[in-house]
């Protein structure tokens, strides 16, 4: 089994784009999805949800405020799953209840502990 990170990309963070009443059923769906992954022993790490605070450090070490500047998407969070292949990982990602126009980037992880 290999590990893959699922990066959740959205055009706005959920708490910015939706009211808390709208958000609640979405979060419920999301939690059910995660529980299903845990039950199948697919989830490696819950990862993290990211907040709106943001800085970009670029060449010349200039620091810009605000979400990632040039593109409209912002990363809302990530988690880590296990799968046999990237295709299988993408299939798992498909089962995720998406919020709005989000996209999920599926990426393979280098195993740092192997020599």
């Amino acid at each position: 089994m290999k590990e893959f990170v699922l990066i959740f990309r959205m055009d706005a963070l959920p708490e910015a784009g939706y009211s808390s009443e709208e958000l609640e059923p979405m979060m419920k769906k999301w939690e059910n999805w995660l529980e299903n992954l845990i039950a199948k022993n697919i989830l490696v790490s819950h990862g993290n949800r990211l907040g709106a605070e943001s800085r970009i450090i670029k060449n010349g070490k200039v620091i810009t405020d605000g979400p990632y500047a040039e593109i409209k998407e912002i990363i809302g969070g990530y988690n880590i799953i296990r799968a046999n292949s990237i295709d299988e990982a993408a299939e798992i990602a498909k089962s995720c209840p998406l919020i709005g126009d989000s996209a999920i980037e599926v990426r393979n992880i280098f195993d740092m502990n192997r020599k």
Partner: peptide, 18 residues
């Protein structure tokens, strides 16, 4: 220490487009 990501990638978009 987080993770280093490899060059393999897929993107899943609304409507199950991969």
């Amino acid at each position: 220490s987080g993770n280093r990501l490899g060059g393999d990638g897929k993107t899943v978009k609304p409507g199950n487009i991969v």
